[in-house]
């Protein structure tokens, strides 16, 4: 029983990077901007979030910095694809490279090479009064760091915005048929910019979660493919906020299994458990890709001066 409670608690704890990066990807994609720079943006978020927390002593400032860096990448992606109409995938890759380079360069020039890794305080748990003392459910659901709660609230908020408000409907229409949206007076450019910028901020924050909760420090390549997994998650969740939230529970469960069973010890060499998240994702893609619901204009650039889309 204790093992199960602990397992479920860890699943909720580890879902956050997937939720935030998945929602960020979804938000941009819903206006047709297909971001593939997540891995690089998360690395920059992790690196910068760690550095700012380390020097300011404030985790909050670190989060803000990570979000700003992600937003900046989102702005770049939106500008290159929306204003300059460049290939989304190629620009995404270029931004991914820049992110990978910056994330290792920044700590090297700012901190330098040290014998013991510089540490920041990890995010404290916020036990919700009353609810956290419910047996079993309390420790699983209501005794977490603030970003666990925030990621759920953001997901529900995005759902409400996209499916229950006029602005949300307009935003979705840009990703489905921008020509129609444009003719009805929806500002396609503005929607593309803002969705990609805010989506980028969420992706940057998801990267900062890693040093702020797991390790307390930044290590090279610490995102470990979670950015790419987030893209698979977004397809898995049909580019819709609530399915992405639940889908991230699955991605997180596989990750916890891969890293916890390792500790418990098993009949398989641990390296094969490390492969688990990636292989499981490929299997999930086999099962769900055919039926996946994708914004019709995903990955394409809209030019209002052209006759047909």
């Amino acid at each position: 029983m204790d093992i199960l409670v602990n397992f479920l608690r860890l699943v909720l704890l580890s879902m956050v990077p997937f939720v935030l990066a998945g929602q960020g990807t979804m938000l941009g994609g819903r206006t047709g901007v297909f971001n593939v720079a997540q891995e690089g943006m998360m690395l920059v978020g992790a690196s910068l979030g760690f550095l700012v927390s380390y020097y300011s002593g404030s985790i909050f400032l670190g989060m803000v910095a990570a979000m700003l860096s992600g937003a900046l990448f989102g702005l770049a992606l939106a500008y290159f694809t929306t204003a300059l109409k460049m290939d989304q995938f190629v620009i995404g890759l270029a931004l991914f490279f820049i992110g990978v380079g910056l994330s290792t360069l920044l700590p090297k020039i700012i901190i330098g090479i040290t014998l013991t890794p510089p540490l920041i305080k990890t995010l404290p748990n916020l036990a919700i009064p009353l609810l956290s003392s419910i047996p079993v459910l309390g420790p699983i659901l209501f005794n977490h760091n603030i970003l666990v709660y925030a990621s759920v609230i953001i997901s529900v908020g995005l759902w409400y915005f996209l499916y229950r408000t006029q602005k949300g409907l307009e935003l979705r229409s840009v990703g489905e048929h921008p020509m129609t949206a444009d003719s009805l007076g929806v500002n396609t450019t503005k929607n593309r910019y803002w969705s990609t910028i805010i989506g980028g901020a969420l992706i940057g924050l998801s990267g900062a979660y890693l040093p702020m909760v797991y390790s307390g420090t930044f290590t090279e390549g610490m995102v470990m493919g979670r950015g790419w997994l987030a893209i698979a998650l977004t397809f898995f969740g049909g580019w819709s906020p609530l399915p992405i939230l639940f889908g991230s529970l699955f991605f997180s469960a596989v990750e916890v299994l891969a890293f916890r069973v390792q500790v418990i010890g098993s009949f398989l060499p641990y390296q094969f458990l490390q492969m688990l998240p990636y292989i499981a994702t490929i299997i999930v893609m086999i099962i769900t890709f055919k039926r996946a619901r994708v914004p019709a204009f995903l990955g394409l650039n809209y030019d209002r001066e052209k006759r047909s889309v």
Partner: peptide, 11 residues
């Protein structure tokens, strides 16, 4: 299965 090669090659 018609699965996009970008993600599978990365994974």
């Amino acid at each position: 299965f018609n699965i996009n090669e970008i993600l599978t090659t990365v994974l």
